[in-house]
C-alpha cells in the first residue's frame, strides 16, 4: 500500500534537496545523538549555512 504520508515526506524532502537544503530534522537528530555537547543550529541558521555551502565553493551544482 502506498502510504500517502510517506509519499508526501519524500516529495517534500526531494524538493528541498533539489535546491540544496537537506532534511533539518535529520540534522537535529544527528547533532543530538552524535554531538550532544555541541550547539544545534536553529532552522534559520541551518538554512543560511546550506545556502552559502551550495554556492560557496568550486564545483558545478548543475549541468548545462
Amino acid at each position: 500500500m502506498l502510504d500517502l504520508k510517506v509519499a508526501y515526506r519524500i516529495l517534500s524532502q526531494a524538493s528541498r534537496l533539489m535546491v540544496g537544503v537537506p532534511d533539518y530534522d535529520g540534522y537535529v537528530i544527528h547533532q543530538m545523538t552524535r554531538h550532544p555537547d555541541d550547539p544545534v543550529m536553529s532552522y534559520e541558521e541551518f538554512f543560511r549555512n546550506r545556502q552559502d555551502a551550495r554556492y560557496g565553493g568550486g564545483g558545478a551544482t548543475r549541468c548545462c
Binding site: I10, A14, S15, L17, V19, P22, H30, R62, C63, C64
Partner: peptide, 25 residues
Amino acid sequence: NDGLDYVPTNRYVLFGHHFAAIAGA
C-alpha cells in the same frame, strides 16, 4: 555523516536531487 554535506539520504529523495542537478538546457 555530519547532517549537512554528508547525509545518508532516502534513495528517491536523492534521485530527485541528482536528476534536478543533471537536467538542464
